[in-house]
Amino acid sequence: MSKEIHLRTPLKDDDVKELKIGDKVLITGIIYTARDAAHKRLVDLIEAGKDLPFDIKGQIIYFVGPAPARPGMPIGSAGPTTSYRMDPYSPILLDAGLKGMIGKGPRNKEVIDSMIKNKAVYLAAIGGAAVVMAQSIKAAKVIAYEDLGPEAIRELKVENLPCIVANDIYGKDLFDEGVRKYKK
């Protein structure tokens, strides 16, 4: 991997400007979780002109539905879920100020274009490395949509959460470039 960068949330334009595909990042600060069902509700709120349950400006959303926490632990296993299911919603959240997304698997053209336009990044976490990811999560609390169970929106306090930059603000895509490099 090219280099290791420490990121603190919320992100600013200057933070994301530095990021290039293939960079390893370690995230510290507050991030939010949301999967398909929560995304739908957030987008419905935006379309109705209502406030979101958290201030989305400069924030990172982690696509994850964690396993339940054992007693005394902040969270259970918490690896990324597949991102393409969020593709229909992400551009609307990016327009609202979202700066970063963490998930697994590639994004579609609309999302990539929206990331260029809004100066935002997509970070790949390792699917299935859910215990490793959970070690970086120091606190978690449900802040909205408790009825969704694992799909509720959680505020996570993270320290050095490891990810790889998959899409930068310059329109580069590691899913595309990496695969082309190793294709025979």
Binding site: M1, V64, G65, P66, A67, R70, G76, S77, A78, G79, T81, I126, G127, G128, A129, A130, V131, V132, A134, Q135, P150, P162
Partner: peptide
């Protein structure tokens, strides 16, 4: 490196008695 992290995950899941994947 990703495969190395997968091994680390397998080790941690046994040590912490947490599921390998949240799904």
């Amino acid at each position: 490196e990703i495969i190395a992290i997968i091994f680390e995950n397998q080790r941690l899941s046994v040590e912490k008695q947490m599921p390998l994947c949240q799904d």
